[in-house]
C-alpha cells in the first residue's frame, strides 16, 4: 500500500511542508519523520549511508498517513512501538509492521473529553519506562499534562497549572519528577509522586536571560543526564539553570534568534531555533561552532545513539528535508520527505 497524493498535495508538500519531529527506530537503521500533513515517512539510514548512494536512497522507503490533514507534533518510541501524537488521538504502531510496510494501529489513547468541542492537540509526549508501571505523559494544548498507564491504557491523572499551552515536557529523577515548559513563560517542575508543582521558574523575569521584545514563551527544554542542569530557552535567551538552586548560571546568547530545540550530548549542548544555524556550545557557554543547515526554523534534533554505524544527527524543521550530519560539524546530506528528489 502506498500513499498517493494529487497534484495539489504534491505542491503543498514541496512548498509548505514542515517536519515537526523525527525519531530513530530501536534498531537504529531507520528514521521516522512526521510532518504537518499527518504523514509519517520512513527512511533507511543504512541505504542513505551506503557507499554507492543514489538519490532514491534519500527518499522515504515508505510513507503512511496517521491523521487526515492534521499535524503530527510528536514522535515517541518504545522498544517496539512508534507513538504518534498531535492533532488527534495518540496512536501506536509496531516498528516491525512499519518496516514491513503494513502499519497497523496497535493501540490508541484519547484525552478525556471536557466539552463537545474540546479536542486539544498534544505537543509533547514522553514515556517514563524507568518506573515499574510505565507511564505515558502528554503535554497538551489545553494547558494540562495527562498521564496514562502504558500497559493497560488506563488514564491515570492530569497535571494542571500552566496558563497557556504546553510546548515540551520531560521526566527527571527516574520518573519521580517532570519538567514542562509552556507558552505562558514558565517552566514548572512537578513532583509526580504527589502530582503537584514543586517549583515554578520564570526566565522572563530574570535579568540574565529576559528578552521581552521576543516574548516570554519557553519552547526549548533539555535536562542533562545527571539532572543537574536544566536548559531553558525560547523568547528569553537560552540559559542553563542549576536545578538545585534554580538560578541561571550560563547563558547561550543568540542575538535576535530564539532557540526552540536543545540537546545535551556528551560534553556539548546542541541547540537550534529560528535560523538556519545549528549551534554547538560548551557547558561553560562558549560558542564552539555554527553549522549551516537547510531549514530556516528547526523543530527537532535527533541523534541516533542505538546504532554505531548509523550514528548520525537528524535535523528537521520548516522544510521538506531532514538534514543528516554524520560528523556533527557539517551537514552531510538531506533526506527528502516527498518523493521528489532534493
Amino acid at each position: 500500500m502506498s500513499y498517493t497524493k494529487d497534484n495539489r498535495q504534491t505542491m503543498q508538500y514541496m512548498l509548505h511542508s514542515a517536519i515537526y519531529d523525527v525519531c530513530f527506530s530501536p534498531c537504529g537503521s531507520f528514521l521516522a519523520a512526521a510532518n504537518k500533513f499527518g504523514d509519517v515517512a520512513l527512511f533507511s539510514l543504512t541505504a542513505a549511508l551506503s557507499p554507492n548512494v543514489q538519490d532514491e536512497a534519500k527518499c522515504p522507503v515508505y510513507t503512511f498517513n496517521v491523521y487526515k490533514n492534521a499535524g503530527i507534533y510528536c514522535l515517541t518510541s518504545t522498544d517496539t512501538e512508534l507513538i504518534c501524537s498531535g492533532e488527534g488521538d495518540i496512536q501506536a504502531y509496531r516498528w516491525s509492521d512499519i518496516i514491513a510496510k503494513s502499519p497497523k494501529v496497535t493501540w490508541a489513547l484519547s484525552i478525556p473529553q471536557k466539552g463537545v468541542f474540546s479536542h486539544p492537540e498534544i505537543n509533547s509526549c514522553v514515556i517514563d519506562s524507568n518506573s515499574d508501571k510505565g507511564t505515558l505523559y502528554a503535554g497538551a494544548g489545553d494547558n494540562n499534562i495527562y498521564a496514562w498507564d502504558i500497559e493497560s491504557g488506563e488514564y491515570k491523572s492530569c497535571l494542571s497549572g500552566h496558563t497557556d499551552y504546553i510546548h515540551k515536557i520531560c521526566t527527571k529523577d527516574n520518573g519521580q519528577g517532570l519538567v514542562s515548559v509552556s507558552e505562558d513563560g514558565t517552566a514548572r517542575i512537578w513532583d509526580l509522586r504527589a502530582n503537584e508543582i514543586c517549583h515554578i521558574v520564570k526566565p522572563y523575569e530574570h535579568e540574565m536571560c529576559a528578552r521581552l521584545d521576543l516574548g516570554k514563551w519557553l519552547q526549548c527544554l533539555a535536562l542533562d543526564e545527571d539532572n543537574y542542569w536544566l536548559v531553558l530557552g525560547g523568547g528569553p535567551t537560552m540559559s542553563a539553570w542549576h536545578l538545585n538552586t534554580l538560578t541561571p548560571t550560563v547563558t547561550f546568547d543568540t542575538p535576535g534568534v530564539s532557540q526552540t530545540v536543545a540537546l545535551f550530548y556528551e560534553d556539548k549542548i546542541f541547540s537550534a531555533g529560528n535560523s538556519n544555524i545549528l549551534n554547538h556550545w560548551s557547558l561553560t557557554g562558549d560558542h564552539k561552532m555554527a553549522v549551516p543547515i537547510s531549514p530556516t526554523a528547526v523543530y527537532s534534533i535527533g541523534i541516533n545513539d542505538t546504532s554505531k554505524s548509523n550514528k548520525v544527527m537528524a535535523i528537521a524543521g520548516s522544510s521538506g528535508y531532514v538534514d543528516i550530519c554524520t560528523n556533527f560539524g557539517y551537514r552531510a546530506f538531506s533526506l527528502s520527505f516527498s518523493h521528489l528528489s532534493p
Binding site: L45, L49, S50, P51, N52, V53, K308, S309, N310, K311, V312, T326, N327, A332, F333
Partner: peptide
C-alpha cells in the same frame, strides 16, 4: 563501526 559520509 561509524557512519560514513560517502558523498564527502
Amino acid at each position: 563501526s561509524v557512519p560514513i559520509d560517502y558523498h564527502l
